[in-house]
Design a protein around this nucleic acid. Structure first.
Lengths: 350, 350
DNA sequence: TATCCACACGAAAACGTTTTAGTATTTGTT
DNA sequence: AACAAATACTAAAACGTTTTCGTGTGGATA
């Protein structure tokens, strides 16, 4: 293991000054041709790479962005990360990820660990526990300190920053409308507790669709799953809740689930009850992931285009970073479009 | 947006020297009690956080580790990342991720972007294209420059470094033995091309199991999928290859697939052909992910314990980093245990 | 009163860069 | 030949820390 060469050692070795080396390497016209050649040759030989940390310190920017998400073993979030990575890398940025595991404390710690010069800005999807507590001081403080934040998916309205979301209400309305158009008379929704913004909004969309079709609201048909945990840590509990939901609501012929896992689990319960999909029960899930695609039968879903969301997040953040001097306090909210991906858990319109 | 306070501004504000402030904040006994109090109060008031970049430069270590994987939209890899994150965070390290997208060039670029002082060490799973090219100069050069690397899952034997793997051969043998014990007579394997180490090794385990049971090798029963791409970019092609494989091998009653996706796709093809699982065909997949768990019927798989693999990777790397002065050139290969998770695509032994 | 030591603090170097502001030396101009 | 200007380079500061080595003050001791 040889020591990594620095400007200083190159300078000493070639008996010139550090500044000469620096300038030679960037082809400054201040430096003579033969010196340039000597320096470049030497640098190439010893595979000199400018130390990024020193550059970060000097420039007061690190060219890395911090992404904080509730969990990473989750198709939607990884898709978003892919989009972030792609755009960020194209712009010469690195991505550092922190996981909150849906925990408020870990979210705070993660923010703390990075908001000390390590990163230039954050992209964040808020933990469920944080949403439930409604304590956002760590986020606002970070913004106040001059570190820009972009929120996606799970956003909080009160905080002023750039946001990337889907139109949850309209999209959900569209999905439920599809069920209605397909002949469903008794449609249930499997949602989250209301503190999760997306769950709340998707429930609203469900209700709007019913209302628009003059179907009376029935609270029994609204199941709000209580899980503050990771998606996979309480599967049996989830299944049990859905099973009792089915038991209490015979004759269900349509299910709208606010995420893929709920939809898949609903299908599992239905199968155990001998209910035919889509003949007796049609199902639509929000979020189009691997589970939906490979489910049996393949699940009709709403695609959120996570990759594009990620790209948008990164674009918003980097644009703000690069013109940080201008200090405009106008924030954007990008609404990315959704698509209804018709597969085999819904009847094809005839 | 107020400016982040530095030692210098605190010093000026309190009319003491920078070193005094620094020492006061770390409770040095060199500093008088009332000065300490003044400094600490001021620091707390303005929420002073030491600049991490400056520390990194001074200490010549960044306390962050780079993880480079082929893709992130993939259950196994994200599970490993979770394990890495957990251990790393506990040790005060951050994790920065780079995606190679199975591309050699992107792998090189990613290594380059980070091996310039940005990170202290790498954890890497090699891209398929790199494995196919057998060009590992970027990896060896990085190691030569004194940046330690830990490889996992897709490792390359020729490179000396710490590694975390599963015993692919023995595990695969065990899985195939299970199929044989369950009464399978004609067992096919769906594997990858041989340049992917894990595919090669798992195929070897398959053959060893057959051999051990005096079942003659039949090359027709060995399907080596040719995909250099991401797992989800060529699904139809994958399905087509498996379909012809089924067509060419009637009477198959057992399938061992070297990953989850191949197994799931095989089940899909079987279903289209009206083959009952597990009655007519038993299936075991390598890698226990969400797909397997939520498949219908739930898939019998081999669990690789990705989370523990991640923890082991991080532990190996950080241990090496923390005693980097000692420079021991003895590398470890940790073999993490696997489990056969019996679900419903295999007959329960009676 | 002279010496010593503890105490409380400051100066400066170092980490590896970039950049501004010089400074010699050579070249060109009249 | 004298001076201006171009050329080729160097010195030093700066980014924000930590840490080593001083240093000046005061009180205690002899």
């Amino acid at each position: 293991m040889k020591q990594k060469p620095t400007l200083k050692v190159i300078a000493k070795e070639l008996d010139v000054s550090v500044s000469t080396v620096s300038k030679a390497l960037k082809d400054s016209k201040e430096i003579g041709a033969k010196t340039k050649e000597r320096v470049k040759a030497f640098a190439k030989l010893y595979n000199y790479r400018p130390n990024n940390i020193a550059l970060s310190l000097k420039n007061r920017k690190t060219k890395t962005i911090g992404v904080i998400i509730p969990e990473i073993v989750h198709h939607f979030f990884t898709t978003v990360i892919s989009g972030i990575e792609k755009y960020a890398n194209e712009q010469g940025y690195n991505v550092i990820v922190g996981l909150s595991n849906e925990s408020f404390d870990k979210e705070v710690i993660n923010l703390d660990m990075l908001a000390n010069g390590s990163i230039d800005g954050f992209i964040i999807s808020v933990a469920k526990e944080t949403l439930a507590k409604e304590d956002f001081h760590h986020i606002t403080e970070t913004i106040d300190q001059g570190v820009p934040i972009v929120m996606f998916d799970r956003v909080v309205d009160e905080i002023l920053c750039d946001k990337v979301i889907v139109d949850d209400v309209a999209t959900s309305k569209k999905a439920v409308q599809q069920l209605i158009s397909n002949g469903c008379k008794k449609i249930g929704i499997i949602s989250t507790k209301d503190y999760v913004s997306v769950g709340r909004l998707r429930t609203r969309g469900y209700l709007e669709a019913l209302n628009h079709n003059h179907i009376p609201k029935n609270d029994d048909l609204i199941l709000k799953i209580d899980d503050k945990l990771n998606s996979n840590d309480n599967l049996e509990q989830l299944e049990a809740q859905i099973a009792t939901f089915f038991k209490q609501n015979k004759q269900l012929d349509g299910i709208f689930a606010v995420n893929e896992l709920y939809a898949i689990t609903a299908m599992k319960v239905a199968r155990k009850n001998g209910i035919q999909i889509p003949e007796q029960l049609q199902v639509i899930g929000f979020t189009d992931g691997v589970l939906s695609k490979h489910a049996y039968p393949p699940l009709t879903t709403i695609s959120q285009h996570g990759f594009e969301m990620g790209e948008d997040c990164a674009r918003l953040l980097i644009e703000r970073l690069e013109k940080q001097d201008e200090e405009d306090e106008t924030y954007q909210t990008v609404v990315v479009k959704t698509d209804l991906v018709l597969r085999e858990t819904t009847k094809s319109k005839s």
